[in-house]
């Protein structure tokens, strides 16, 4: 596989009313998983909203391959090949696990309801449970499955490890690695540095709505000073 950019954000600006949230954000995602790291409130989720068209951008372009997504509705962007695992999981609370999967399953796709149940036997056990009756970990598995059923070219995950027990975090990271190996491009937005470093190869660090650093995961892992400066973390590995 080449390293040609699949998802390309160029000079994205986004405003909420009069506050300027994203400043000329440019990112390129190839088949190497990319992490977007930054503290709370620096605009990480705004980048996701911009990618999916859930908030209108003020300027800039979003390309998927050679298709311009910038002017498309959220549903058209998803159909074009984007899968979204949002922050807070946003499970439909009045749908059962089975209904979540059934309404999104596509014929002839790589991911089917059957495959989801094989990957997550826990979801099969709980298939008749409503979304708001699931544990955080189960909800996360369902949120990821829901996005995978679209068989996306690009999977965007916004803080998928938030609020999960360490053992489940490991499972989620493993799954992300598996998805990436199967050829889906992964964009992982995270606050959890260690989870992110285990799942991605490249990292973009966001401060105040701007991309301030682009490094490899390895370089960031070995640079406690950078971690402290931009992510507010003390020594790595602590």
């Amino acid at each position: 596989m080449g390293t040609e950019a699949l998802l390309r954000l160029s000079n994205i600006n986004l405003h909420y009313g009069s506050s300027h949230v994203l400043h000329d954000v440019s990112l390129e995602l190839s088949d190497r998983p990319l992490g977007i790291l930054g503290r709370n409130g620096v605009g990480k989720t705004s980048i996701c909203n911009a990618i999916f068209g859930l908030e209108p951008i003020t300027s800039g372009t979003i390309m998927l391959g050679d298709q311009d997504l910038s002017k498309l509705t959220p549903e058209k962007r998803a159909q074009a090949g984007l899968g979204y695992v949002p922050q807070g999981r946003r499970i439909f609370r009045s749908l059962t696990v089975e209904e979540h999967l059934r309404i999104l399953e596509r014929k002839g796709g790589n991911w089917t309801t059957e495959r989801v149940y094989q990957t997550f036997p826990r979801l099969k056990e709980r298939r008749r449970n409503l979304g708001d009756r699931l544990s955080g970990g189960e909800q996360q598995m369902l949120a990821i499955s829901r996005a995978l059923l679209l068989n996306p070219q690009v999977l965007v995950l916004d803080e998928p490890t938030e609020g999960l027990a360490p053992a489940i975090v490991t499972d989620v990271v493993e799954l992300i690695n598996q998805v990436a190996q199967e050829g889906t491009s992964v964009l992982l937005v995270e606050q959890n540095l260690h989870a992110a470093l285990a799942a991605v190869q490249d990292v973009a660090i966001i401060v105040g709505g701007e991309v301030v650093e682009r490094v490899t995961a390895e370089a960031l892992e070995n640079d406690p000073k950078m971690q402290k400066q931009h992510l507010g973390l003390e020594a790595a590995g602590a």
Partner: peptide
């Protein structure tokens, strides 16, 4: 439940 999420799922 969540109109935006449904749209973001295509």
């Amino acid at each position: 439940d969540d109109q935006d999420m449904l749209r973001a799922l295509g």
